[in-house]
């Protein structure tokens, strides 16, 4: 089953697209696994996600920690720390 990934701000710019549908391998269980998997997909992903500790992730539009399981996710948002207000 494919998962919709959406990217924002400099994560979006470095990956070079605002969103994509990806089939994730069975070994990708947590958010941390997902970020490591994405980093293996190419230089643009490596560049976007190299400092993965600062990367924020939302599953189905709610913030989650990196140890959260991604099972059941319809949409996963990946973005830098927020700077609104």
């Amino acid at each position: 089953m494919s998962t919709k990934l959406v990217y924002f701000a400099w994560v979006r710019e470095r990956i070079g697209k605002p969103e994509e549908e990806l089939d994730l391998p069975a070994g990708v269980v947590t958010v941390r696994d997902l970020l490591n998997h994405l980093k293996s997909l190419g230089e643009e992903y490596e560049n976007a996600l190299q400092y993965s500790d600062v990367i924020r992730v939302a599953i189905n539009q709610e913030h989650v920690e990196h140890d959260e399981k991604i099972a059941g996710a319809r949409e996963i948002g990946i973005f830098p720390p927020m700077t609104g207000g």
Partner: peptide, 24 residues
């Protein structure tokens, strides 16, 4: 709102150069 609502600011510099994303 400033730390949790998903908004990001990018600066446009007065000299016309492409600015940076504002750091948290």
């Amino acid at each position: 709102l400033k730390t949790s609502a998903p908004f990001w600011k990018k600066e446009h510099a007065a000299d016309g150069s492409q600015g940076d994303w504002v750091a948290a």
